[in-house]
């Protein structure tokens, strides 16, 4: 730790677990989606898990810890420009949580994942496997949603790539270890940056309850027992 730096806990356990589970599932979805019809059943099951996780993260964005909340990281355009200047000047960033650009990226990624899982529910493979909500719509509509499912995945790859490049930029040019922080939850920050914000951490039990709620919601969507 350099002079004038301080270590601050910013990411709670639910955010970190969400992030790394999503990374693993995303890799699996990529693999199973491209590996042909033999993998489709597992692709669908893992997709339900992604949907439950994304819905959980959205709820956590309203009810979670300080730096998990949308209100804490969806910043005004002026802040985004300010952030861009920091990045280009390679000055250590004064943001404890997501920086303004990263914050918007979180929202875009979550929305793209919602589109991806949502269209997947209605998709078909012109064979024996249909999404659990395929029965509710016409084949033509399902075909259109399947195309969106395919193209939106390319968008997701692009977004994930941009996310990765940004994190590597922080590591290479700004000496900021964002990847480590996503494991430990602790960030090294300029001493003056941390002073302003005192993070409040929500109970992990609340996270567990919310995750149970979203998992149940996905279960009901998939099984439609009513």
């Amino acid at each position: 730790m350099g002079a004038g730096e301080t270590q601050v806990k910013v990411w709670d356990v639910p955010v970190r677990l969400f992030h790394w589970l999503l990374v693993l599932l995303f890799a699996f979805m990529f693999f199973s989606g491209k590996s042909g019809s033999e993998w489709i059943e597992w692709h669908m099951r893992a997709g339900y898990a992604v949907l439950a996780l994304v819905l959980f993260r959205i709820l956590w964005g309203f009810a979670g810890s300080t730096h998990a909340r949308f209100t804490s990281f969806l910043a005004a355009p002026s802040a985004c420009i300010e952030c861009m200047k920091h990045l280009l000047a390679r000055k250590p960033s004064p943001y404890p949580g997501h920086n303004p650009l990263g914050g918007w990226m979180v929202l875009v990624l979550l929305l793209a994942l919602l589109v991806q899982t949502g269209t997947g529910l209605f998709a078909n493979d012109d064979l024996l496997s249909n999404g659990p909500l395929y029965d509710l719509i016409s084949k033509a509509t399902s075909d259109q949603l399947t195309m969106i499912h395919i193209w939106n995945f390319n968008l997701l790859l692009l977004l994930a790539g941009a996310h990765l490049i940004a994190v590597l930029y922080h590591a290479a040019f700004m000496k900021e270890n964002l990847i480590g922080a996503m494991f430990t939850g602790v960030k090294r920050l300029p001493a003056d940056a941390a002073g302003g914000v005192v993070a409040r951490f929500a109970s992990p039990w609340l996270a567990l309850v919310l995750l149970a709620v979203t998992a149940l919601a996905v279960y009901l969507i998939v099984k439609r027992p009513f």
Partner: peptide, 15 residues
């Protein structure tokens, strides 16, 4: 049969 359908679609049919 399902495997025969699937593997031919995978190899010879655009998504």
């Amino acid at each position: 049969v399902a495997k025969a359908c699937g593997s031919c679609h995978d190899g010879f049919r655009e998504k």
